[in-house]
């Protein structure tokens, strides 16, 4: 999942690859409040994972790795309910 997330961050949002590390805070990687909304849409369109606005706001303080883990958990949940 980290690799897929990194692709979205680097190729779609043009963030500096060197800043996109698992331990980097999303904000330090370049995800400000505007980019977070864009990232929410990208995740929906490319990975099929949907966040509400409230959920998305709560991810702002995560690291890239934590966000990646959250995506993995959401995907797992989706797969469980969609046989």
């Amino acid at each position: 999942m980290f690799a897929e997330l990194k692709t979205l961050l680097v190729q779609n949002l043009k963030l500096d690859e060197r800043m996109v590390m698992p331990e980097s805070l999303l904000e330090d990687a370049g995800i400000d409040s505007l980019a977070l909304v864009e990232l929410g849409l990208l995740v929906e369109q490319h990975l099929g994972i949907t966040f509400t606005e409230e959920e998305l706001v709560r991810t702002a303080s995560l690291t890239v790795g934590q966000f990646s883990d959250l995506l993995a958990a959401r995907r797992q949940k989706l797969q469980e309910v969609t046989p």
């Binding site: 949002l13 043009k14 963030l15 370049g30």
Partner: peptide
Amino acid sequence: GEAFLDPVLARR
């Protein structure tokens, strides 16, 4: 734009 400016600035 991306050839002349920082890529993040260019896309924004």
